[in-house]
Design a protein around this nucleic acid. Structure first.
Length: 576
DNA sequence: GCCGTTTTCGGCCCGACTGTTTTCAGTCG
């Protein structure tokens, strides 16, 4: 059975083909919107349809035509009209759309006049000066295309993890903060929305006076590898880390409007501007206007208020119902770092961590936490020097001394116990029963089929000692897909047995992801955001997990490590 | 192809930058 992303990419391809064919741009947009909607669903669309055939009627941007196409795709795994559509445009043209300076119009022009139907053919034409001869093209465009082809062939730019983007942005902002004339300064874009990965970096600056010296300082930043564009109010560069960075300069009266605009998402902005237009207003990056008069713009709050909307947290701005919720006053109050009272998954020198229990406890205390759980690996994880029963009891003894040594923070005894192939646990029940916080984890035998994996995990969730399931789907951000699993069944078991599901904040994991976290939240299963810290510094990875939780619309009540310690510890035994 | 606080037809976000152009089309975000 095909996945949502297969259907989404089919719609995207159709949109690209229609674009090149010069069809109605709004029809093209309809396909792109539908692709996005489908991509954002938390469950496979054929399962949603099986449960509720009317589900498509509630999805925004899906009307009669796309409705029928989705049904056809779910029933037959293909669209009958797609073959003819695909045959109408050479496949190489679609790849050409990804090159800079080339959109549907120019790709079509290249094909119609020069017969260019692939990136290789284009490279040859550009290298021999045939591209510049076309109307509307010239030497510079030709050079830009050629340059783009070489980039495309050598680096193949990928999206960057949020945590890496943060390092680059923090340094860039620090550089700009010292530039004369700079007043307000903010990072925007998908970074501000807390997306797991970001495709480019966006910086907004305000000034009273002339923007050009600020633009100049931006492009002269030593870390800039290439200047792509430079105008009076904006500029684009590529930095050494191979990611595009855009700067926009406006004056203070427009700061909120520009921040709103520059934060996106694009789809959110389109919907916001359409809403404004319906009430006779116009929204741009300069403000909210009635006729020619600005009625809002200095802050984001007043921009949203001018549209009768509550301020919407950036993480929700994905056109997934946040505008309706803002209009109804039903936006969630999202969990913040200040709400967190503890970290419930950390390692020490007892297994594969680098610090002592006392050092980890002090580090947690320094973050303002009230509690921390020490959760080293169990014995079957031999590469991490996992603990056997004897070692667990020895650690428990030492912990009594560490508690006296580090007062002022509640240190929970715990373990990250492996779930064996058959769903039993890696340590004896009488030892597990002595620990405050037992986390179950799947590390091995990831190759099981969905039925076996689901049985295995559900069995572990039924164990009376288990309070939390760590990195529940086994995904690794950007590198490994979740293992085969009936996620809905797992969530139901977690709910029944009062087991917390983890949002693992380690940047290489981010498991659960925002989509699964949202599904667990809607099912009423409390989540827990843990760093899985193996070093003192890794406590700071918590922001990655907070991003996922906030993008899953989680409030503090949905996150168990915002709870007071008593509630946390009695949650398991309150299961019915 | 979608959709309705003006609409079931006729709209569909808005503006900057570039390059190639003497007024604008195409691309981009």
């Amino acid at each position: 059975m095909q996945s949502n992303s297969d259907l989404a990419s089919l719609f995207t391809t159709i949109a690209d083909i229609l674009d090149i064919r010069g069809e109605n741009v709004f029809r093209v947009r309809a396909y792109r919107n539908a692709a996005r909607t489908i991509e954002g669903l938390s469950e496979p669309i054929h399962e949603l349809l099986a449960r509720d055939p009317a589900v498509l009627d509630q999805l925004p941007g899906i009307g009669k035509g796309l409705h029928d196409k989705i049904l056809e795709y779910c029933q037959h795994g293909a669209l009958s009209e797609y073959a003819a559509l695909k045959a109408s445009v050479p496949p190489g043209l679609l790849a050409m759309l990804d090159l800079p300076a080339l959109g549907p119009k120019r790709v079509k022009l290249l094909y119609d006049t020069l017969g260019i139907d692939s990136i290789d053919a284009l490279e040859q034409a550009a290298a021999t000066g045939r591209v510049r001869a076309l109307p509307g093209m010239g030497e510079k465009t030709e050079a830009k295309v050629l340059h783009g082809i070489r980039e495309y062939k050598t680096l193949h730019t990928e999206r960057m993890p949020w945590s890496r983007a943060k390092l680059i942005l923090d340094a860039y902002l620090a550089h700009l903060r010292g530039v004369p004339g700079v007043q307000q300064l903010a990072a925007a874009g998908s970074y501000r929305r807390g997306r797991e990965t970001v495709g480019d970096l966006d910086i907004l600056v305000t000034t009273h006076g002339d923007a050009r010296p600020i633009i100049q300082a931006f492009v002269n930043y030593p870390n800039v590898a290439e200047v792509l564009a430079q105008g009076d109010t904006k500029a684009s560069v590529i930095v050494q880390e191979k990611i595009q960075t855009d700067l926009r300069v406006v004056d203070n009266a427009s700061f909120g409007a520009a921040l709103q605009y520059f934060t996106g998402s694009k789809e959110h902005n389109v919907a916001i501007r359409a809403r404004a237009k319906a009430t006779g207003l116009k929204v741009s990056e300069y403000g909210v206007f009635r006729d020619e008069t600005s009625i809002a713009g200095a802050t984001e709050e007043e921009v949203y208020a001018a549209l009768d909307l509550a301020w919407i947290p950036p993480e929700l701005r994905e056109q997934r119902g946040e505008i309706e919720a803002a209009a109804d006053g039903t936006l969630p109050v999202l969990v913040t770092r200040a709400d967190l009272q503890g970290d419930l998954h950390v390692h020490t020198k007892y297994s594969d961590g680098t610090a002592s229990m006392a050092a980890m406890a002090r580090a947690a205390q320094a973050r303002g936490y009230a509690y921390v759980a020490i959760t080293d690996h169990s014995k079957s994880v031999t590469v991490a020097h996992g603990l056997d029963e004897t070692a667990v009891l020895r650690q428990l003894d030492e912990l009594a001394r560490v508690r006296a040594e580090v007062p002022g923070i509640r240190i929970l005894s715990g373990i990250e116990v492996d779930v064996l192939r058959d769903g039993t646990l890696d340590l004896a029940d009488d030892v597990l029963a002595q620990l405050d916080f037992v986390i179950a984890t799947v590390h091995f035998h990831l190759e099981l089929d969905a039925a076996a994996m689901t049985r295995r995990i559900v069995r572990a969730l039924q164990h009376p000692a288990v309070r939390c399931l760590a990195h529940p789907t086994g995904r690794r951000a950007g590198t490994r897909a979740p293992f085969a699993l009936d996620f809905t069944a797992m969530v139901a078991a977690a709910r029944a047995h009062h087991v917390l599901l983890e949002i693992n904040a380690a940047p290489e994991r981010l498991d659960l992801d925002e989509t699964h976290a949202g599904q667990a939240r809607r099912a009423g299963v409390p989540l827990v955001i843990n760093t899985d810290a193996h070093t003192l510094a890794e406590f700071d990875n918590i922001d990655n997990g907070l991003n996922s939780a906030r993008r899953a619309w989680c409030g503090a009540a949905d996150i168990a490590n915002t709870w007071p310690i008593d509630r946390l510890l009695t949650w398991k035994t309150s299961a019915t």
